[in-house]
Design a binder for these strands. Structure first.
Lengths: 191, 191
DNA sequence: CGAAAACTAAAACGTACGTTACTGTATCCA
DNA sequence: TGGATACAGTAACGTACGTTTTAGTTTTCG
């Protein structure tokens, strides 16, 4: 029976997703990506142009996946409060997903590591933060009315704090701490 | 008139503090540090043994400075709540300090960039998180009693979230958002 | 003073890395 | 079937970087 492998392009994206965000972008040599993807340098540069090009597409994939998971958890929620807090449930599900491995947040890690990213990378990083801000603001509206911006900012900080806590390794279960805290904050904005 | 320069060791530490945490550790070549410090490679390796050794000592300096600023702001505070919230006032003062320049947090940035840091670096990073946890727990006690650990965890997330927001560039004034949110959280823990 | 220590300048070394080029092979499609 | 396309394997190139070495100069201090 013939075993069909995924195309080289897909294997490269998977390898990039796995290695770049666990070991670090600069800390991962192209050769490691090639070995992990079981492909050759010529293929990488034909498909993505450069290591940065591969990084950009890997980030785009992460963003699409994360957005989908977040979407699903918002849709499942039954009231305004749990829709706002769905970001924490989504994060829990996203991190437990099979194909997701990272030390903390792929976008923030990349932003931290590369001070002046090439345009395609910069674009994805901005898109991630824009998505976060836009959605939280929208979800805060029914809860806080014209003070929605304040609540959204507070929840955004809590969310980023949870991500940073993965890096710190403390507290042990940052997601539930973050969720509970955001819930208390949302309650205090009830008008 | 004779112009006395600071000793090479100090100049190297200052250069490291300035460059490593704004451009990134790996993104800053040793040659740039030498040029900025107006010294030579032989001096760097005689004094610090390696680039990592210099990094470790630069981080130790950051930690000492930060601890001192935080100390001072705790001492100035007049009640239990403002002592807990002093971390945000200290952060504001620390970031506005003359000699401090960084994209966000030197410790978290280093932890993110270097997945397996050499021992001296690892030690400082751990010390930073330990200081944060220990102090917040201590300052939470008079406000939350036996629920102090929960409040401390929540404030730790808010604080880390403020730091991460510097990286995101959003919201615009994360420190005051964080302080206000932590204040609301502390109030909800009043027993 | 005079020796030891600190420092500068510059070259050299070894290596790691991103990228390109070359060659051969398998796969797809008209 | 046959030619184009995708891909693997490998070698090579150029360069950037951390570190060492050598040699000469200044500073420190008993």
């Amino acid at each position: 029976m013939m075993v069909t492998r995924a195309p080289a392009r897909t294997r490269l994206l998977r390898a990039a997703d796995r290695l770049l965000f666990t070991r670090g972008v600069q800390a991962t040599p192209v050769d490691d990506l090639l070995r992990e993807a079981e492909t050759s340098a010529a293929t990488l540069y034909a498909q993505f142009g450069s290591k940065d090009g591969l990084l950009a597409e890997a980030l785009e994939g992460r963003l699409a996946n994360w957005q989908a998971v977040w979407d699903a958890h918002i849709a499942e929620a039954s009231d305004d409060t749990s829709r706002l807090l769905a970001i924490f449930d989504a994060l829990l599900a996203y991190r437990d997903g099979e194909r997701v491995s990272a030390r903390w947040c792929a976008f923030l890690a990349t932003a931290s590591e590369i001070s002046n990213p090439p345009k395609p990378v910069r674009t994805v990083l901005d898109a991630d933060s824009a998505l976060l801000r836009k959605r939280l603001l929208h979800l805060s509206r029914p809860l806080a009315g014209d003070r929605a911006a304040e609540l959204a900012d507070a929840v955004e900080l809590m969310y980023s704090g949870v991500l940073a806590s993965f890096l710190r390794g403390d507290p042990a279960d940052p997601i539930s701490v973050g969720r509970r805290s955001a819930e208390a904050l949302a309650a205090s904005y009830r008008s």
